[in-house]
């Protein structure tokens, strides 16, 4: 195929779009998950992640996690330069294995929460949060 200037531009545009898509799991995210789970299989159910569908500003996004009975919950922002956000370790006096905080998201991406249960199993929940780019930097 003869590569015209027009084709080249289209290809460049295509790869730019691909680069902007939220990464499903970067190497760093996979590493963080492996460190937390020890490579164990991660199921679903028994964990709730609450996050806004659309965040007004990626700098301060309120999220909440809840996994009844969990020992610990790790939160990851899969599209951030470094995916780790926080790991909640619950002590004997935690009334619920839940918590809320506010996080930074570098752009539209999946937020993932993985809970470690006392029997050594893992469950996860994830949600996409769209981060809007405002008109007024002000």
């Amino acid at each position: 195929m003869k590569l015209t200037r027009r084709h080249t531009l289209m290809l460049a545009a295509g790869s730019a779009v691909a680069a902007m898509l939220p990464m499903r799991a970067s190497a760093a995210a996979e590493e963080a998950i492996a460190a937390f789970t020890g490579g164990a299989e991660v199921g679903s159910g028994g964990i709730t992640l609450t996050a806004p569908e659309i965040a007004e500003n990626g700098n301060t996004v309120p999220i909440a996690v809840d996994a009844p009975g969990a020992e610990a919950i790790m939160i990851l922002a899969m599209g951030n330069p470094t995916p780790g956000v926080a790991t909640f370790n619950f002590g004997p006096l935690a009334a619920a294995q839940s918590g809320s905080t506010r996080i930074r998201l570098a752009g539209t991406q999946d937020v993932v929460a993985i809970a470690r249960m006392p029997d050594g199993s893992f469950v996860q929940a994830s949600q996409e949060v769209k981060v809007t780019i405002g008109g007024c930097g002000g």
Partner: peptide
């Protein structure tokens, strides 16, 4: 503002 920002 969005619900989340209002709540703050």
């Amino acid at each position: 503002r969005s619900d989340e920002t209002q709540a703050l």
